[in-house]
Design a protein around this nucleic acid. Structure first.
Lengths: 200, 200
DNA sequence: TGGAAAAGTTTCTTATAGGAAACACGGTCT
DNA sequence: AGACCGTGTTTCCTATAAGAAACTTTTCCA
């Protein structure tokens, strides 16, 4: 991407590319209130090594970093932050309440959000699930990827393979492997509204 | 968390499987129809090095792996997978309303959702934005990736680079390139609640 | 078939990652 | 103050990553 912005903060991001890793790891460790010794032990590495990594005095191996991410619960994608274009570079897409693109399937009635941005990777949509309509629930829904679900209103029960049915009410959320069979029904008097964000 | 924990338990202890990384990289390269030479050049590494990585004859540095992920468009979280195609394969993670993991930054007060599943690719969280608190808004927030935002309650204004400020109320949503500078303030009398889903 | 060019693998060498131990620094006891 | 932690840094050494070039295998066309 061409440098759209005259803002100098862009370069800061790039320049810090190298420093980024050490900084993140140090922050994560301190967040947990761990010493170098403790964190090192948790990750199975020496404290001197960890010190050098945090101070960017070394280029750790992937293996070491992976162990650290595990021990420190680091968000892995953030570690890969580096300069470069995104396919939706510099764009945004708004959908006002109720203005999404309707999509009705036999089983659900969806409202697709932010459909202008076709190249986006996540797919957000809101589903209205009819009250106590159990009839439809015959077979699992299954599609490769991951899914996040947030209950906006009403009460629903989420069924997933390998697990017990899960009763959810407004404000509750679930994250699951959508390759696992799943399905959702309303269990309240009113229709339930659920926000899904799907990622292939 | 709630009394009953249907959550995942991370007890998968890996048996030093380096096979995974090399295999994934080789697949990604062949997917693109590239030779070692071409892929190496794209990533800025030698073809011999790449060969050794693909055959798991070496433990590459994080730096090298990162360059490869970029050149080959690899899904970064998958690289951290221990065994099997996906770490969250056949799993789910629930967070009941208000039971997320608090994370306070200087600028925002977040509630991270579904944090048990550390290897997930999307990061959902709820932010409470204090009413009419404009003071904090000094510099853009910027992080590589994409972001989806849904206003749960209250009224907010989303600022993004290259665009005009955007007034949003409950039920509205936006999808944007989070590499673009952005920031959000509340414009209502009450605190606003916003759901974000972030993807690197 | 051959034999050349391309793709991939294996040396070989140099630079450096990673760990043990020594060092430095700051607190906190008596 | 001095001695003694606990924490983080630096030094030193060994193991090994990374690249260049030599070597092997595969591809492909006359």
């Amino acid at each position: 991407m061409e440098p759209v912005s005259p803002n100098t903060e862009d370069e800061i991001v790039e320049a810090n590319d190298l420093d980024h890793l050490g900084k993140m790891i140090r922050e994560a460790r301190q967040q947990k209130g761990w010493t170098l010794e403790e964190a090192g032990k948790a990750a199975g590495i020496g404290r001197s090594t960890l010190s050098k990594i945090e101070n960017n005095q070394t280029r750790p191996s992937f293996d070491i970093v992976r162990r650290l991410t595990k021990a420190l619960d680091l968000k892995t994608p953030q570690l890969f932050v580096q300069s470069g274009p995104s396919d939706i570079s510099g764009r945004r897409d708004v959908t006002m309440s109720g203005q999404g693109e309707p999509q009705d399937t036999p089983t659900y009635s969806h409202e697709l959000l932010c459909t202008e941005l076709t190249s986006k990777r996540m797919f957000p949509y809101i589903s209205t699930i009819k009250a106590r309509d159990v009839s439809e629930f015959e077979s699992w829904i299954r599609h490769r990827g991951e899914e996040f679900m947030y209950v906006i209103s009403g009460e629903v029960t989420l069924f997933t393979e390998h697990y017990r049915p899960l009763a959810l009410k407004a404000g509750d959320s679930v994250y699951y492997d959508s390759g696992m069979g799943h399905g959702c029904i309303s269990t309240s008097e009113e229709d339930a509204k659920v926000l899904w964000v799907s990622l292939e």
